[in-house]
Nucleic acid binder design. Structure first.
Lengths: 194, 194
DNA sequence: CATAAGTCGTACTCCGATGTACGACTTCCA
DNA sequence: TGGAAGTCGTACATCGGAGTACGACTTATG
């Protein structure tokens, strides 16, 4: 929690913490098994310094995930969700998929070290954003209502994750991801007009 | 490769191998980090016996995955893929999703220990079955053609995997999985009739 | 029933990663 | 500028899992 306003730290300590978290995001975002040592090196910092700020791996992973989600929230909060629900969803997906690509293996790392509940908590904000948009679309008759909304929300996530994996595996060109994701998700959500 | 007709083994050896592979399927299907020892215990066999048949973990994982896919092939080859493409796909999905639930974490284990290419090879048969069905649906005008077929095939897999995860997380009741999966996949594949 | 094949316990080595202890050094900042 | 705060190398204890070596025992099978 950055808002926790902990004990006043020296400026360089603060800087190092930021570096470490950012390095963790990057390293774990590439390889979920990156060691503490790898991360410290990537941050340009000794392993001992890292342990000075994070008691153990779990604490570090949590900080990295929290930061990734915080940054995501920041980016996503800029998206205009007004107007036609389908268009709004398209805009949201356009801004979202890259974040998923970036952090997907970080999420895998978290799944291995953090309690499930904690992960869900951290995802609450982005999930709610999607849920609200879907609900609005349903109210307007644009989106289907014959499937549980929890599934609709999660399938959006799974499709993005799937696209991210295909992208990493070089089976889906980066330039095509956005289009493919939006076309797929819109097909899933669209109200059957029959 | 079961067809490799290796050196004639004693009957009990054969039996133990089968037990081990099956235990591996089950253990790794639950926890991708299950240790060799766990698996041996689950098979009711000494660790040394296991090593007598599988040189290392990778070999065991490969055998387990191969067996899981072989069993899957067997089940799926019984599905009638004739008639209306949508109906055929529905039947195929009905028979498939449970297999995905069973083996999803085994697949994760394989991803950690086997070369990517090997995994794809083993998946060739089921993937091709889906691809052919989609192609036929496209020829008949029932399925969309505006997205790459490789994506359509893989999205089917990702949706099933997503549903499997939701199911494990208790957010999607087992009895609902089949319906939700087919409704979702059919929406994705359906040709836009506008 | 003899013997080759297979089982499997014990007891190692090896390895990489985590986390701790200590202490000398550097840097901030009041 | 002095002392607190922070850095960080070296060295260590620990842990768990992988794989090996040995050898005595059991069992299938010709």
């Amino acid at each position: 929690m950055p808002t926790a306003a902990g004990p006043r730290r020296r400026a360089d300590a603060e800087r190092n913490i930021a570096r470490i978290v950012s390095a963790a995001r990057e390293s774990l975002g590439t390889d979920p098994h990156a060691s503490i040592d790898d991360i410290a090196k990537a941050a340009g910092v000794g392993r001992m310094t890292l342990y000075g700020h994070f008691r153990n791996r779990a604490e570090l992973v949590e900080a990295a995930l929290a930061e990734a989600l915080r940054a995501g929230e920041e980016a996503l909060s800029a998206v205009d969700l007004g107007g036609d629900a389908q268009d709004a969803l398209t805009r949201l997906l356009d801004s979202s998929w890259a974040l998923v690509v970036e952090s997907m293996s970080l999420l895998a790392a978290a799944q291995g070290t953090l309690p499930v509940g904690r992960i869900r908590e951290l995802h609450a904000a982005p999930a709610q954003r999607v849920e609200e948009l879907i609900r609005r679309g349903q109210d307007e008759g644009a989106f289907r209502t014959d499937l549980p909304i929890t599934w609709l929300v999660s399938v959006v996530h799974h499709v993005m994750k799937g696209a991210a994996e295909e992208n990493r595996a070089k089976r889906l060109k980066t330039e095509d991801v956005a289009h493919v994701v939006t076309a797929t998700v819109l097909s899933i959500l669209a109200a059957p007009h029959a």
